[in-house]
Design a protein around this nucleic acid. Structure first.
Length: 188
DNA sequence: GGCGAAGGGAT
DNA sequence: ATCCCTTCGCC
């Protein structure tokens, strides 16, 4: 391990390259830590983020990103990737000290409401997402339901290639869906 | 929520 | 080509 910090009776270890997540918290959350080194070094952190995102754990996935003087010029790009492309929750921190304080608060706040927890993802959000997906031309109740079973997020759905959509909704609807999400980015 | 027309999917 | 299912506009 690289280092550890202690705050409020909670020991926090920073390690290199754990399997998927860097932290698992008691409140059903896990954390991936992106350091300023990762950000400055290039795009290789994206691989780890995608793997993290695709590791379908039952935990709510958070991403802590160091936003420092060294890495701030890259921050908006990281933010766009994490939030928009992957649909994850991003929390900027100034360094490991602030990260450990944040994690400590989240651990201590367990039992109380976790402000970073997504509001009941499956039960409350699904009807809204379902209604949203049905706004796509050629997609009604049945196809929307099928799509949501095969794609775990809107991000994955709207970035999906027609070939990925086709086995789920058929060729015609697959093309309509792809066109709908790409109609103003000079698509096919 | 239910009906009917039109279109697409599967066989 | 045919049947069945889905979408969608309408009441």
């Amino acid at each position: 391990m690289e280092s550890y910090l202690e705050g409020g009776g909670v020991k926090i270890f920073f390690e290199n390259e754990l399997v998927v997540a860097d932290f698992h918290l008691p409140n059903k959350s896990c954390i991936l830590y992106v350091s300023e080194c990762d950000v400055v070094a290039g795009n290789s952190y994206k691989r780890r983020l995608v793997r993290y995102r695709n590791s379908s754990s039952s935990f709510h996935e958070l991403v802590l990103v160091e936003n420092t003087r060294l890495s701030e010029q890259y921050f908006s790009a990281v933010q766009k990737f994490v939030v928009f492309d992957l649909g994850l929750t991003l929390l900027p921190v100034s360094g490991q000290t602030e990260a450990s304080q944040l994690i400590t608060q989240m651990v201590h706040g367990d039992g109380r409401e976790n402000p970073f927890r997504r509001r009941s993802s499956s039960r409350l959000l699904d009807p809204l997402v379902l209604a949203l997906v049905q706004q796509v031309p050629g997609v009604g109740r049945v196809k929307a339901l099928a799509l949501l079973q095969h794609f775990s997020s809107i991000q994955q759905l709207c970035n999906a290639a027609p070939a990925k959509l086709e086995p789920v909704v058929g060729q015609s609807a697959a093309q309509q869906i792809h066109s709908f999400f790409h109609k103003h980015t000079a698509g096919s």
